[in-house]
Design a protein around this nucleic acid. Structure first.
Lengths: 340, 340
DNA sequence: AGACAATGTGAGATCGATCTCACATATATT
DNA sequence: AATATATGTGAGATCGATCTCACATTGTCT
């Protein structure tokens, strides 16, 4: 019962012409008689001919597919980016293969190899690691269209879209210091991850600028999920002298911290002040509302996709490295602390 | 500089054998001499031979790709499902093409056609509409492996995974009625969408069972995004006699309702009681915590992918229509109302 | 020794679409 | 009328991997 899709040969046969002529009629190139053209069109119509993109790609080049490797689609930040990329791909007649590296370098490498053997047009990647990116270097060296999104692998020469992580983090921590805080906690992701590293740099720079000594016990590392962040926050605030303020490096962690504080009976901003990197839906619902460093999420995915398509169309020659600004949105989760 | 990837021909040439022999050595079938086998392996290694999956698929059948069309990847519910499907695909050596119908039937149809011409192995679809699914019927009739997830198109004969929407909604509304509410609002998605329709049915069934007359002014329709839900909630509660309780059909709408209530100065559960379908991260952070109907999210995507792979491997013969139970999780967002 | 199986290898067809080239006609130009 | 040009069409090659088939070569059994 599995009716095989009609091939060009079938169309040609029905229209009583050769495959070559059928192809000309359907793709409108070369000379085709009016009459013949109509016959072929009709035949194609009747058979529901669709063209096998596999065969087309095998001959002509690559599949109209963009490959996208992100850290975790469940993270609303990446979900938004994936969505925006998908929309642009659709506008350009491309499909989108999405894969999740789950923040594992090994997995990213094997996914990339797997996607590359699909002969797809280009890649948008959020590298799982800031270092050890020989696989990306190789891609770039072979001039495979590649755009890095949200994260930059410094040693890879290709287009990239990211935000001013260090500056954003620094603004946040400086604001906390300005409000009188000295024991400022950092809830961060693995330092291998570019954004986490840059945000940590911003945190440390702000501390250093105010002559506050960095203290490992103020830093907790967790995977970027609500569940892991809850645990990490609890560990951080179970110390004898816990932080008086916390800076979290992404929105899932911010939410984890909120839930942890609730379960520990710690109240914001009375007991602890909080600033999170990346805004989120319910940030204005909580009481108090959460102060955050916001990034232009809606621009990031669109821009990455735009860069990729520019490269695909051969327009751009030099690589573009785009950085968006971040903004501190002051709401109510930070309180002034007098003395220490 | 664009180094073309090595082909089987290159490998064969380097190993001084024919293409046929090289293929045998690499795919280990037929007779191959030990010595020859090693030579070919070495050559492949040296050239970084990777096999062109396009060519393989063109000859042998279909690409090891699963196509997935959901309503909106940004909805955490779908993001979770997409993630789980992707994990299973990866385990099975498949890649995942994700596309978003944006809840438009037209777009779903065109995406499906576009994916089908890619010769991919099978589809997992959350139909945008409960009706008018000729495109899905055609697929099923041609025995293209297809699994419907979260939503069921009644007139399409294929595997499906969904939850007991009507029962879940009914439980929620019965609970509200039991707490003394009579003017119960419904914040729902377009009734064309299967889940929205079933949840509405549950809502109406619960009302009918308690002889409460359905009232259109208690129902507000909105797209499933936080922003739209805010507006819809505001409309609903700007009436002279607004509902005393609200049931929302998904978590983004629940969050929208929460934000709307905050902006209107309506307090939960004092002024209004609230139950949402689908649990979410911050449901236990808000004050009070939100009572929800929870569904086994972690099962849905996995099960859908499992069904698809069973079908791909030809194991299953009859179609499986799976429904998961839902559970009312009572927290603090509903208050008892005496009199009316 | 002769017959037959086991083992190893290569030539060529195949999948479907596209493109080059050669070959027809028909029309225009000298 | 003879040549040049425009207009249509088909045969066959191509993309890369796989598989069938035919052909060797070696070994085994009567």
């Amino acid at each position: 019962m599995v009716r095989k899709p009609a091939t060009l040969k079938d169309v040609a046969a029905l229209a009583n012409v050769s495959r070559a002529t059928a192809a000309r009629a359907l793709n409108s190139y070369g000379y085709v008689g009016d009459e013949t053209g109509r016959k072929v069109q009709a035949a194609a119509e009747r058979l529901g001919y669709r063209g096998n993109r596999l065969a087309q790609a095998l001959r002509g080049g690559r599949l109209p597919i963009v490959g996208c490797i992100l850290g975790d689609i469940q993270n609303p930040f990446f979900a938004r980016i994936a969505h925006d990329i998908e929309v642009l791909c659709r506008e350009r007649g491309h499909n989108l293969v999405i894969a999740s590296s789950e923040e594992e370098l090994e997995q990213e490498i094997s996914l990339l190899a797997s996607l590359q053997s699909l002969s797809i047009r280009g890649f948008i990647v959020a590298p799982a690691s800031a270092e050890g990116n020989a696989h990306l270097q190789r891609l770039a060296a072979e001039h495979v269209p590649l755009v890095m999104v949200d994260r930059v692998a410094e040693d890879v020469e290709c287009d990239s879209v990211a935000v001013d992580n260090e500056g954003g983090a620094r603004k946040a921590v400086e604001y906390l210091i300005g409000m009188g805080h000295r024991r400022i906690g950092l809830l961060q992701d693995n330092a291998r991850i570019f954004t986490s590293r840059e945000r940590m740099n911003g945190y440390q720079a702000a501390l250093a600028a105010s002559d506050i000594k960095a203290n490992d016990r103020m830093v907790s590392v967790s995977q970027s999920t609500v569940e892991h962040a809850i645990d990490a926050t609890i560990r951080l605030f179970s110390q004898k002298t816990p932080p008086t303020a916390l800076f979290t490096v992404d929105s899932l962690m911010t939410q984890g911290a909120l839930l942890a504080f609730r379960s520990m009976g710690i109240s914001i901003p009375h007991d602890v002040s909080l600033i999170g990197f990346d805004d989120f839906n319910l940030a204005t619902f909580t009481d108090p509302q959460i102060t955050v460093v916001s990034q232009p999420v809606s621009e990031i995915g669109r821009t990455a996709a735009r860069l990729l398509f520019e490269r695909l169309s051969g327009k751009s020659d030099h690589t573009q490295k785009i950085r968006f600004e971040t903004k501190l949105i002051v709401r109510g989760s930070v309180s002034r602390r007098s003395g220490s």
